[in-house]
C-alpha cells in the first residue's frame, strides 16, 4: 500500500529525512516510533503530500505521491490531482484539528459533501453510523469546544473515515490527551485495525504498538534504525539507540 525508497526531506539546511525505506502492505498496521525530532511526523506528512519530499520514491497504492512519471521525467501534479490523492488518505492529528466553526455532524459530512459530492442526506446517515462506531451517538449538534479531548479525537477519526480512505495516517493521536482519555481513542483505533484498515501510526504508546502493530519502525535522526515485528523489536532491541529510547519511554 505504501512504499518508500530512499525518501529525503530538508528544511533549509537541516536534513530531517535521510533516506527512509518503508513498506506497508494492505491491511497492515505499522507503527513509527522514535524520539521527537527524529522525522517520523515529517515522513507521515510526506505520505499525503502535506510536506513535499525532495528525493526518493514514495508510492501509495502503486501511484507516486505528488508526481507523475512521463517518459523519463517526473512531472509535478496539478493541485487538483494532489487533492484527489489526499482525499483517499485519512489523517488524524495530534491536536485533533476539528473545524471549530462546524458542529460534530458537519465536521464529519463536510469532506464527503464538498470534496466527493456525496448527497447531504446520505452523508448525514453515514456520519451518524460513524459516530455510533466511535461511541459518540447523540453528540451531533455539539461544537468541538464542548467535547473532551478524547471525544474530539474520536470525532476526528470519524471525520477521516467518512471519506472512506484506503489508508489512515495517525500523527501522535493520543499525545495531547489526559492519561485517562487515551484508552478510549486507542480502543477505537484497535477496532479499526481489526476491521482490516491499513494504518500508519506515529505513537509513543508502546503497549498499543506491541498489541496491534504488524510492523514497527524505529526512526532516529532521519533514518530507520531498526524495524520488524514489534514483539521482537520492542522486547529485545538490537540497536543501542532503541535500547536507550525504550528504557526512557517504558
Amino acid at each position: 500500500m505504501v512504499e518508500a525508497i530512499g525518501v529525503h526531506k530538508s528544511y533549509a539546511d537541516i536534513e530531517v529525512l535521510r533516506g527512509i525505506n518503508v513498506n506497508v502492505a494492505r491491511g497492515e498496521v505499522t507503527c513509527l516510533i522514535g524520539p521527537s525530532g527524529s522525522g517520523k511526523s515529517t515522513f507521515l506528512r510526506c505520505i499525503n503530500h502535506l510536506e513535499k519530499h525532495d528525493a526518493g520514491e514514495l508510492r501509495v497504492d502503486g501511484e507516486l505521491v505528488g508526481y507523475e512519471l512521463r517518459g523519463d521525467k517526473l512531472h509535478e501534479l496539478t493541485d487538483r490531482r494532489i487533492c484527489n490523492e489526499r482525499a483517499q488518505i485519512g489523517m488524524v492529528f495530534q491536536r485533533f484539528n476539528l473545524f471549530q466553526n462546524l458542529n460534530v455532524l458537519e465536521n464529519i459530512t463536510v469532506g464527503p459533501v464538498k470534496v466527493k459530492g456525496v448527497d447531504e442526506k446520505q452523508a448525514n446517515k453515514s456520519a451518524r453510523e460513524l459516530l455510533e462506531r466511535v461511541g459518540l451517538e447523540g453528540k451531533e449538534k455539539n461544537y468541538p469546544t464542548q467535547l473532551s479531548g478524547g471525544q474530539q479525537q474520536r470525532v476526528a477519526i470519524a471525520r477521516a473515515l467518512a471519506m472512506e480512505p484506503k489508508l489512515m495516517l495517525f500523527d501522535e493521536p493520543t499525545s495531547a490527551l489526559d492519561p485517562e482519555l487515551v484508552g478510549e481513542v486507542l480502543d477505537v483505533m484497535k477496532d479499526l485495525a481489526r476491521s482490516g484498515m491499513t494504518m500508519i501510526v506515529v505513537t509513543h504508546e508502546m503497549g498499543f504498538a506491541k498489541e496491534v502493530a504488524d510492523t514497527v519502525y524505529f526512526l532516529d535522526q532521519g533514518v530507520i534504525e531498526e524495524s520488524g515485528d514489534p514483539k521482537i523489536v520492542l522486547t529485545s532491541p538490537s540497536s543501542p539507540r532503541l535500547q536507550s529510547f525504550l528504557s526512557k519511554v517504558l
Binding site: N84, R86, L98, F99, V110, V115, R159
Partner: peptide, 27 residues
Amino acid sequence: VDEGQTEAATSLGMTRSQTLRNVVLPQ
C-alpha cells in the same frame, strides 16, 4: 485561524478555495 484547521481541510482533499470558503473564512 490556526494552521491545523487548514491542514485538516487539506488532508480531507479540499482545494485551497474550498478550505478558504468552508473552514478558514467562517472562523
